[in-house]
Design a protein around this nucleic acid. Sequence first.
DNA 1: TGAATGATTTACT
DNA 2: GTAAATCATTCAA
Length: 227
Amino acid sequence: MAAARPIGSASDDKRIACRRILPRAFYSRPVLTVARSVIGKLLVSESADGVTRGRIVESEAYRGPTDRAAHSFGGRRTARTEAMFGPPGHAYVFFVYGMHWHFNLVTGRTGEPHAVLVRAVEPVDGTALIAARRGIDGDIRNLANGPGKLCKAFAIDGNDYAVDLCKAGRLYIVDGPPPKKIGRSERIGVDYAGAWARKKWRFFDADSPFVSRARNAYGAQRKGSPP
DNA sequence: TGAATGATTTACT
DNA sequence: GTAAATCATTCAA
């Protein structure tokens, strides 16, 4: 095995471009498995203004129809959630808070409304373009360390709804090494889901400074005083 | 037809 | 720490 190399060099870029696109078999596994396994993989976005690549460092699993935090809870199948019920390896993209897009990977078997929310990415290639899209410069850790930021950084929106991630095109994910240590925590922003919000279905690279809410280094943080 | 709300981010006190 | 921004989706009527 090759020794660890810094990511982002020109030669490394060439190497990344040759990596295999994750096959549908990667996605057609239990949603928690996919959420954990996708940490370290590379998200690739190709658009008219250029190619951007980023290492996925944070994810969350949503397992409808039983998971109260999932949009597909109770088997709710609407125009919005339709992609979650479709075949694995496709994108579930939705709009929230009147201004932010979120990007998910559909997992499991067709008909099982399971998805993995990609919450944070470490910019690897096309950083200047990402910074321009985000309208900020300075600390690159802030470019894609959140689900909404990430979509803006990689130009993901409703046009990418249900796109097939298993073939080269607008959006796909290529193989990459897993991190040294994966942290776990409760999912963020789903307090309305009661007990389901307390499940530790958030996964992240414990050593990455590019995860959202960086203070939870090892996922041990708990807010408040649970029973 | 209308009202409530959200898998967030940003700016401000 | 708090609050504003801002609208598609959802559900009730």
